[in-house]
Design a protein around this nucleic acid. Structure first.
Length: 154
DNA sequence: GCCAACGTTGGC
DNA sequence: GCCAACGTTGGC
């Protein structure tokens, strides 16, 4: 059992969009960074905990609790010429990009980025480090526990 | 294999 | 919209 923070832009898929999807589940398509891809492909398992994070928006922060609900499989968008995630170097035989499915567990009151920064328990979190841009980062179990039990409110 | 140029991310 | 930080690309 591992824990992850996954960033999504609310203008693309926000917490309310996720809540409105069938089974409250979304394919985490569009990751085009090898480190983030490798986390999904090599390290994620069904049931892993996910913090759903809103990035690149007016109020960045953690917007919900979710979990990994599928293993990794080829990202369909890499084959779709009309998608901005199309990758001409990817083929059906040798796909380059993978994604898992993520299912909402519960929406929470937004925990703003500025709030996360106040807690010494979280000072080592990858997402809070200067210069970090990775859209998927692992969380320590202690960080997961602190955020989900101390900071998250329904 | 180096590294400059370019593109992207994401907070502010 | 700005811009710092980082990742990728491609010429050599």
């Amino acid at each position: 059992m591992r824990y992850w923070l996954m960033k999504s832009e609310p203008s693309d898929v926000g917490i309310d969009d996720l809540a409105a999807l069938p089974n409250q589940t979304v394919a985490w398509y569009g990751v085009r960074n090898y480190q983030a891809r490798n986390f999904m492909r090599d390290q994620m398992s069904v049931g892993d905990g996910v913090l759903f994070y809103h990035s690149n928006c007016a109020e960045p922060g953690i917007a919900g609790i979710a979990h990994v609900s599928s293993g990794a499989y080829p990202d369909a968008k890499q084959f779709d010429k009309k998608s901005k995630y199309f990758d001409p170097k990817a083929t059906q035989e040798t796909p380059r990009w993978f994604n898992v499915d993520v299912q909402l567990v519960k929406k929470i009151e937004l925990i703003p980025l500025a709030e996360l920064r106040k807690h010494s328990e979280l000072e080592r979190m990858r997402t809070l480090q200067k210069g970090n841009r990775l859209s998927i980062t692992p969380l320590d179990p202690a960080e997961w526990k602190f955020i989900t039990t101390k900071l998250a409110h329904a």
